[in-house]
Amino acid sequence: MRKLQVNQQEQQLLNDAITHWVAEELIDPETAGKIRSNIAVKGFDWQRLAQYSFWIALSCVVLAFLSIFVDKGIMRWVESLYETPDLLISAFCWVLAILFYYLGFRHKKYHPDKSFSNEAMMALGVFATATAVGYMGEVLGTKSGNYSLLFLTSIIIYAVLAVKLGSNLIWIFMLLALGIWFATETAHQSNWGFSFWGMNYPLRFTLFGVLVTALALFGQTRVKILLPFQTVSYVVGLCYLLISLWLLSIFGNYSDFQIWSSVKQWHLIGWGILSTSAALAMTIYGFKKQDLFAREFGMVFVVINVYTRYFEYFWDTMNRAIFFAILAISFFMVGRQAEKIWRGIEKK
C-alpha cells in the first residue's frame, strides 16, 4: 500500500488529530495505529524543487532573450539577420509555438502528474505565440500605432488554446493579454493620453477588475467549457481590482504627474477610504461565505492600505526612530493577535 507522504509539520498535525479522535472515541486505537502506519515523512520536497526549477528555467529563457541585446557578438549576428523577412520570422515562431503546444499536450496526456513540466512547455508556446503575433503585426503594418488589434488576436488564440489544451497557465496569459489590450485600446482612443473618459489608468483598471471578477462569478459558471477556469479568472480579477484600488488610493484620478505631485496627500483620502473599505468588505464577505480567496486577498490589502497611509502621512513629518518604533510595535501586535487566533483555532 502506498503511504501518504507528508512533511514533519503535517505529520505532527495528523498525529495530534488522530490522538484527539481517539480521545473523543471517534476512532478506536487499532484504526488509529493503521492510519499512523500509513503516514510517512518525506525527506525532501522534490515537488517544490521541480516547480522552482521549471520556473527558473523559463526565467533563464527570458533572460537569454534579453541578453541578446547586450552581447555585442550576438548583436552583430542579429544585425546580419535584419534582412530576414518579418513574415519568415513570424512563420518560424508559429512553428515553434505549435511544436511546444503539441509537446505540452502530448506530455500532459501521457504524464498528467508532471504538471510543472507540462505547464513549462505551454509557457514556451505562449512566448512563441506572442513573438509570432508581434511579427505578424509588422507584416500587416501598424502605422496607425493601434497595437490593440494584435493583443486582441493573441487573446483569441490564447482563449482557444486554453480551452482545447485545458491549460490554466494559458488562460492566465489570456487574462493578462486582455488587460494589456484594454490599456492599449483605451489609450489609442484617447490619442495615447493618460485620461480616457475622465479616468486615469488605476480607475479604468478598477472597473476592469470589477468586470473580470463579476464575469468569473456569474458568467463563467454558466458556460460549461469555461467552468474549469472560473477560479483562475476569479483570482486574476481580484488582483486587477485590489491592486488598481490601491494605486487609486495613491494617485487618485490624476492623469498628470506634475499636478499629482503638487497635491497634498490628504486630498486623496477619499480614494484611500474607498480602497480600504473595499478590502475590508471583501474580508468580511470571505469570512461569511467561507470564500478563501476573498478573505485572504481582502486581509492582505487591508494591511497594505493601512501601512501605505501610514507612510504617506507620517514619513515626512515624524522622527525616523519613532516612525520605525511604531511600525515595529504595530507589526508585533498584528503578529500577537494572529497567534491568538491561530491558537484559538488549534484548541477547537
Rank of each mutant, 00 (worst) to 15 (best):
T206M: 08
I250A: 15
D16Y: 09
N146E: 00
G43M: 13
L103P: 04
R343W: 12
E138S: 15
L4V: 13
A162P: 01
D45K: 00
A338Q: 05
L66T: 08
I56L: 15
T308R: 10
K42V: 06
Q189C: 05
A159E: 03
L124F: 12
V22S: 03
W266K: 03
T131C: 15
K224G: 07
F293C: 06
E296G: 09
Q11N: 08
T186D: 04
I170L: 07
T131R: 11
D71G: 08
T276A: 04
A23R: 08
T142S: 02
M122H: 10
T221E: 13
F311N: 01
S148A: 11
D316M: 10
Y234W: 11
A162H: 02
I329A: 08
A325Q: 02
T206F: 15
S80G: 14
E339N: 06
Y201E: 14
P29F: 08
L215M: 06
I273W: 07
L241N: 01
I180H: 09
Y135C: 10
K347W: 05
G73C: 14
K72L: 15
I18V: 07
V41S: 00
T153A: 10
S275K: 04
G298E: 12
S117G: 01
V303Y: 13
M122P: 05
Q337E: 09
F311T: 02
A325R: 01
F116N: 14
A40F: 13
G198M: 04
I89K: 09
A40R: 07
V300Q: 02
N7Y: 09
W181N: 12
V223K: 07
E30S: 10
A120L: 00
G272T: 00
A120F: 13
F257D: 13
G104A: 09
A321F: 06
S249P: 01
Y52L: 11
L103S: 13
L88N: 06
T129P: 12
L150Q: 10
K164P: 02
T31Q: 11
N253W: 06
L161W: 09
T283M: 09
A328I: 03
I269L: 07
K42G: 10
F323L: 14
Q258V: 12
W94A: 10
R48L: 13
W55C: 04
V232M: 13
Q11S: 12
K340W: 13
T206R: 07
H111G: 11
D256P: 09
A23K: 01
I322K: 02
